[in-house]
Write a protein that binds this DNA or RNA. Structure first.
Length: 122
RNA sequence: CCCGCCGGACAGGCAGCCGCCCCGAUCUUUACCGGGGAGGAAAGUCCGGUCUCCACAGGGUGGCGUGCCGGCUAACAGCCGGGGGGUUCCGCUUAAAGCGGGGCUCACGGAAAGUGCCACAGAAAACAUACCGCCUGAGGCCUUGCGCCUCAGGUAAGGGUGAAAAGGUGCGGUAAGAGCGCACCGCGUCUCGAGCAAUCGGGAUGGCAGGGCAAACCCCACGUGGAGCAAGACCAAAUAGGGGACGAGCGGUGACCCGCCGCGCCAUAUGAGUCCCGGGUAGGUCGCUAGAGCGCCGCAGUAAUGCGGCGUCGAGAUGAAUGGCUGCCGCCCCGGCCCUAGCUGGGGAACAGAAACCGGCUUAUCGUCCGGCGGGCUGA
RNA sequence: CGGGGCGUGGCGCAGCCCGGUAGCGCACCUGCCUUGGGCGCAGGGGGUCGGAGGUUCAAAUCCUCUCGCCCCGA
């Protein structure tokens, strides 16, 4: 397995407030115990793009950063098995702060499964 | 050795794999290599500055801030040193006071510039006051006494109220009293000495002016323009406006009618299209990290701090990097193996994340170590 | 980065400016009324005034620090 498949450059991230707005308005919602996720099918040629939002209600800046970094690492490892063309925004819950890392990755895989099912029916 | 208070330092270390942000080299297509990557509080945003833009002749007033004295500093509400007050401890001494030393602590200018407030209680709460008392005199009453009642006056010793009642203690004095007189203490004024000063010490003198609150209004002295890196500078789409230039199609009409083609004419309304100019949004670039910098040494100073020399470069993001998973060693706690040493099993490691940059303050913080002060126990 | 507001019985609020008694409504408890309940009437209990320190004789109130929540502007 090539190391390049595990990278997580800026081209794979959402960097504009307008992009978040579009996904919230036109996307669908996935709900899990550790996070909620909004996803939207974009141009199928584009690479998959991911964003995270950690509002103040989640805790202090240290806790918010920790939640985002753990979730980002879980997504990074799972990124090669995600089909291109999806844009996803994660809304983590406070439970993601000290949940087992393996639970985070399995939750991400569960979301990937939902996306694969939606991709084949459309 | 243990406990408490105060001050200071540190904030586990070394590797492996996979990632993220910035810089540089190779390459210029993927990629790959090297270097760097959170804190003592980065926090709260309570102060002060650097920097940027706006405003601005000078002065005054107002507002706001500061407030014992001296020093440090770019500046400060910070720091250092000193003075004074409060509180506590130790030693000496005493009738009580007092003297000396140490710790902690204080928003510590002015109450004889003016205004205001001081509940309840109390006679009276601020140009003081006579309620109960005490004393003197006059009158009256009888149960004749160190008596009682009334009136006139003297009095701040005593009682009582209060947070606070016009110096305190003692002696003298007096009808009873009173700084009325005296001694000591306190206070005011004058003066001498020490100190840059706050202030301290001594002497003379006045029988004593005067309640508290200015974190009530206020007065005095000093300081103070406003906003903030989303400051500010530059580049600049798409769309819709603004200014200007070029510009001619469509349309209408006419030669018998209709269709098509061509041509002529008409007038200015609509005004396509192209180009230029200007403002400016999205977006981008700069500001943006070498600075009152950090480390060591020397000198000056009680210290804060300053000066000099040498060395060194240690984040710069913008949906916002500094992470994930492991191993070994070290630290702390609990348990086991014969006590110690040692071995071994399990658990724990805080508060917290840069956003232009510095100097402070305040708050949060598992523990370990160092220094100072105080207390307790034990041993020599 | 800058500015503003609010924490007072279980709930919603006065009192704070100008310091001395913490009050109002709903809710709660007891009694009366009623066959019983509700309504009504009478009486009653309950508050570290977000926390700490200070000023003062005295602090919910004044001052300083601090915690939490909410709302604006660029």
């Amino acid at each position: 397995m090539s190391t390049a498949r595990f990278r997580f450059p800026k081209s794979a991230r959402l960097l504009r407030s307008a992009e978040y707005r579009r996904i919230y308005d036109g996307g669908s919602k996935f709900v899990g115990p550790l996070f909620a996720a909004f996803y939207l099918r974009t141009q199928s040629g584009d690479p998959a793009r991911v964003g995270y939002t950690t509002p103040r209600a989640l805790g202090t800046s240290v806790e918010r950063n920790r939640i985002k970094r753990r979730l980002r690492e879980a997504v990074r490892v799972a990124l090669p098995s995600l089909e291109p063309g999806w844009a996803i925004v994660f809304n983590p819950r406070r439970a993601a702060l000290d949940a087992e890392f393996s639970r985070l990755t399995s939750e991400v895989q569960r979301l990937w499964g939902v996306l694969r099912a939606r991709g084949t029916e459309s």
